[in-house]
Design a protein around this nucleic acid. Structure first.
Length: 589
DNA sequence: GCTTTGTGCCAC
DNA sequence: AAACGTGGCACAAAGC
């Protein structure tokens, strides 16, 4: 078997694409500059198809380069995403001494330019006073001129990345992280290409059932209008009262003597007044209408598929974000509309108690790993004798992961600390590091950002001679808040790494299962193959021909075991899944 | 008129 | 008015 060939694919300044083999930096793979990149990619993938990952592509940005290939029905086995890798290496404490990390900011530090972003750009993240994560422009840094890096630039960047990894404190972990991140980018593009099967007629029926028929533009659906009347009646308010206006509604509620100071659900639930029931229901239906109503259907579902844009690494911790359509917040109420194609099924799998298990693995916590062996980690904690009930075990663990300081979660923390000292110490250490303004790093090497300028200012303010009590309070609040962030970062970030490895393994295994006879409704190259259609932090949905569903379920389980081994080697922490084969997403769980 | 901010709820 | 992490999104109000 030949080793893999490494091929850089980059745009030519004058148009078209260039394929350059890395082992032959002065020459070009096959045709060199090509007008039809798909044909060239397809030919090379086919020539080497006997070998797993026989072709290793490198390009600037999977989200830009891959969709056109997929549109032509071409799939690549493996592709290194330079921009995603650069971002990780630039900040990782494992590679902090590298040339890549110490160089002044360059084009690879720029976010993807508008030309790089095929779908509507997400709104700029709002600057939070405390968590200002936007990179601070260094002196001398200037905007990326706009054009994508050419082949020479991509080769140079790849070499810098390889050097940074090779010279790092843990090359194998970083190598795995970059491979997983890059594979995730392929999965994201493929899921968008394939789309999540969506039955517009079922969705419309759900809306009609709970809201009434679709009203003319600008009018309330009948059920909402009726609830608005009941709200007005309960408040003795005039017909002009608009329940969508918070100030008006709050005023009317105050006048009627409702003892709520906000319109939050949890607060309304605590007051006893006839307006509460219709108001809560109004808010419920209003949310469905505005977030996933007919407008959403018109905007996001086409040809029986929902195609969201996933933003790989879009969250600081390494989780994915999404842009448009709210793919990561699909409410349970509309999941009935997610129906598999005729003759196909969904294999829905979700990792049970992923974050505490990941914590056990990171901490080398044998006791916690043992508690997780039976499938339900929280039940295992109860069985260990540490706490009395499953609910306490759950809130206690979540409190440890999030930094909860009140209520039941804080009360059971000492008991958890006694029973699982290694796990608790790991998150406490991460919190202390953050409180000092330090940086924490995940299992595979993704590092947290340093605190922003607002944080520094708060700390400095408390040290000034004239500093008052409120300056001290502000500094303390900022300190603790950043500690909660770094505490959670290590666990959430490592869980995201596990999930990336899981996804990558599922993707490869599904492809290796091959085809299943006649083509279905999915687009090429997935028409006759099981394929991923949805991912949500610790959950995946595979769309598969009926006859293959059980095999797919087995492979998804095997992939979870593989992910555990990749991150934690022989350490005996398990990652059990809930796996179901269903026709509609709503039927899972 | 437009953009930004505040509110509140959805997902994990 | 949350307490306790990460996000996206829609709307009304406020600001320019």
């Amino acid at each position: 078997m030949m080793g893999p060939v490494h091929v850089v694919l980059a745009p030519e300044p004058g148009g078209g694409m260039r394929l350059r083999r890395l082992d032959d930096p002065d020459g070009d793979a096959g045709p060199g500059a090509v007008a039809d990149a798909t044909a060239a990619v397809r030919a090379l993938e086919r020539d080497r198809s006997g070998d797993r990952a026989a072709v290793r592509w490198t390009w600037d940005d999977t989200a830009v380069r891959y969709p056109p290939l997929l549109a032509d029905g071409a799939r690549v086995e493996r592709a290194h995403d330079l921009r995603l890798a650069h971002r990780i290496l630039r900040h990782s404490t494992l590679a902090s001494g590298s040339g890549l990390a110490t160089a002044p900011p360059g084009p690879w530090d720029e976010p993807a330019t508008p030309e790089h972003t095929p779908v509507p750009r997400p709104r700029a993240p709002q600057a939070d006073a405390l968590f200002d994560l936007r990179p601070e422009p260094a002196a001398g840094a200037r905007a990326h001129p706009g054009g994508a890096p050419d082949a020479a630039g991509a080769v140079a960047e790849l070499r810098a990345q390889r050097a940074a990894v090779a010279g790092s404190d843990d090359p194998s972990r970083l190598r795995l992280l970059l491979a997983a991140e890059s594979a995730g980018a392929l999965v994201a593009a493929e899921m968008r290409h394939a789309g999540l099967p969506w039955r517009t007629d079922v969705h419309d029926a759900i809306l009609t059932e709970v809201l009434g028929p679709r009203p003319p533009e600008g009018r309330r659906p009948a059920r909402l209008e009726a609830l608005a009347d009941r709200i007005r009646a309960a408040l003795d308010a005039p017909p002009t009262l608009n329940p969508d206006s918070h100030p008006d509604l709050l005023k009317a509620m105050q006048y009627a003597g409702v003892g709520a100071r906000s319109l939050r659900k949890w607060e309304l639930e605590q007051v006893d007044h006839p307006v509460v029931a219709p108001l809560l229901e109004y808010k419920n239906l209003y949310r469905l209408l505005t977030a996933n109503g007919w407008h959403w259907l018109d905007a996001w579902v086409e040809g029986g598929r929902f195609r969201p844009e996933y933003v790989v690494g879009g969250v600081v911790t390494g989780r994915w974000a999404s842009s448009g359509g709210g793919a990561l917040q699909l409410p349970k109420a509309v999941r009935r509309a997610v129906v598999a194609d005729p003759g196909w099924r969904f294999v829905v799998a979700d990792a049970a108690q992923l974050e505490p298990r990941v914590l056990a693995g990171m901490a080398g916590d044998e006791a916690m790993a043992r508690a997780g062996r039976g499938g339900d980690l929280y039940a295992g904690i109860v069985a260990s004798g540490a706490v009395a009930t499953r609910e306490l075990a759950k809130v206690g663990m979540l409190g440890a992961l999030y930094g909860g300081t009140t209520g039941a979660s804080a009360q059971v923390l000492p008991r958890l600390a006694r029973a699982f000292p290694r796990s608790v110490a790991l998150v406490e250490d991460a919190a202390r590091t953050g409180e000092r303004g330090g940086i924490v790093t995940t299992r595979l090497g993704r590092s947290s950002p340093p605190p922003g300028s607002e944080w520094d200012a708060a700390q400095a303010g408390a040290l000034e001679d004239a500093a008052g009590a409120d300056a001290a309070t502000r500094a303390r609040t900022a300190t603790r808040s950043w500690g909660r962030f770094t505490r959670n970062f290590v666990v959430q970030g490592t869980a995201a790494e596990w999930a990336l490895c899981w996804l990558a393994s599922i993707r490869r295994r599904l492809w290796e299962l091959g085809t299943a006879g006649p083509a279905g409704l999915a687009p090429a190259p997935f028409a006759d193959r099981p394929h991923l259609v949805f991912f949500l932090h610790d959950e995946v949905v595979v769309h598969a021909p009926v006859a293959m569903a059980e095999t797919v379920a087995e492979q998804v389980r095997a992939a979870a075991e593989e992910a555990g081994r990749l991150l934690f080697g022989d350490f005996p922490v398990s990652f059990p899944l809930t796996v179901e084969v269903v026709e509609a997403y709503a039927d899972a769980k």
